[in-house]
Design a protein around this nucleic acid. Structure first.
Lengths: 230, 230
DNA sequence: CCAAAAGTGTTTGATTTACACCCATGG
DNA sequence: CCATGGGTGTAAATCAAACACTTTTGG
């Protein structure tokens, strides 16, 4: 807590942006255009500006990379990473944020990094060194956090579009956890948890079968009873 | 992810060190000896050194402030705080760590900050502005995290000395949550959860009544069934 | 012997699970 | 009319809360 002899640090934000795309749990990655790690995959991110708060920097990067502001979706701080050698150029402390977004209709909208795309997380995590810097660890931490939070919050709705069916919501859990859930018990559980889902007037038959009630995400990001253990 | 025009940041670690002392949930605070916030209470912490990893900085501060290395106890990253105005002198990003320690026999051992002491968290949180900087918020976040993790992990043992009884462990929960728990059901629950407690040969009658089995913390920081909902 | 805390057993009610069954649509 | 998913009912199993009861010490 002394005076002014603080060493020079750079501060960045890195983003773990997760979604569910065609039944697969996937993360947004960019291909690096410069050294170090030229040509390798990395998490999107960038330097925090001099007068910018950390969440603002994360939101700005999210907008730049995906064209999304998480009015839909969800953004929270994940953790910080500051090992001395993690960036070979200089001492960098990175504050990682975890974002959950619905499957974008356009892969990535009018976006800074044209080379960004979603890749299934199992593929990215298969060997830890496939990502630049320590981004493999950051991604693993983000994936673990997301999986854990689905168990006891209503966050899974952040992966769904504005209106969605209970079956589509169940598909999110099945993709993220890699399990099969009983459709009947799942339905009872989520519709019976206050604050989780808000019914709309509409129904849909996309996906076939009997028309399904459409829901919006509840207002509260509600905490729930355990939901379902994989 | 551009070149080298990064603004000057200072990086610190701040510590939320929690314990249970005479039945009260308490946090370690120091009295500031300099401006800004001269004379106000603050969380212990300090600048990260140029070649020091973040967890190492947190461990070093913990040692300096409490004389404890958390071989007993527990230390984990909490969150980072970097709002532009949070330190009036300069732009500082602080990485907060959460430490859970047993009640120290000596209040604070051979310690850097002679003015450090444990204060009940309710007193510290009663009005948010009682702590310097944004340390009220950091403390609140740490307290919330600790309370939440007791629910589904065996972390409560980090508040206990090397050997302890089930009744002493129950007292930890009651202090942290501010509730009364049924001693009989609590006993069954914790002794029945594999990996939570490791029985020793000893017993004790400190606290009166029938001799109580002594336990050590289990090896695994086990995840548990929900335990008990307050 | 009495108080006080440890520890066990049992009863009751809630929650979860598994699965039988009916519903409403598209092809 | 049938395949497909949506949605409800229900019985069995599992789990948690409440509490009667026994144990073992100190005073």
């Amino acid at each position: 807590m002394a005076g002014s002899e603080h060493p020079p640090f750079a501060v960045t934000v890195d983003l773990v942006i997760l979604t569910v795309r065609s039944g697969r749990f996937a993360a947004l990655v960019v291909e690096r255009g410069e050294d170090p790690f030229h040509g390798r995959l990395a998490l999107p991110g960038g330097f925090v500006r001099p007068d910018e708060d950390l969440p603002d920097a994360a939101l700005r990067e999210l907008r730049e990379e995906t064209g999304l502001s998480p009015s839909l979706g969800h953004l929270e701080q994940l953790a910080s990473y500051g090992a001395p050698g993690r960036d070979p150029r200089q001492r960098v402390v990175s504050v990682a944020y975890l974002g959950l977004v619905p499957d974008l209709p356009e892969p990535v909208a009018g976006s800074d990094a044209a080379s960004s795309r979603f890749v299934p997380v199992d593929d990215l995590l298969r060997d830890a060194g496939s990502l630049a810097f320590d981004h493999g660890r950051i991604l693993a931490d983000g994936v673990e956090r997301a999986r854990a939070k689905l168990e006891y919050t209503s966050l899974a709705t952040a992966f769904c579009p504005d209106e969605f069916t209970v079956g589509e919501l169940r598909a999110v859990y099945e993709a993220v956890w890699g399990v099969e859930l009983d459709p009947r018990n799942f339905h009872r559980k989520v519709t019976g948890t206050p604050g989780f889902l808000e019914p709309t007037v509409g129904t849909t038959t996309r996906g076939g079968g009997r028309p399904a009630q459409l829901y919006r995400r509840g207002p509260t990001t509600a905490l729930m009873p355990p939901l379902l253990r994989p």
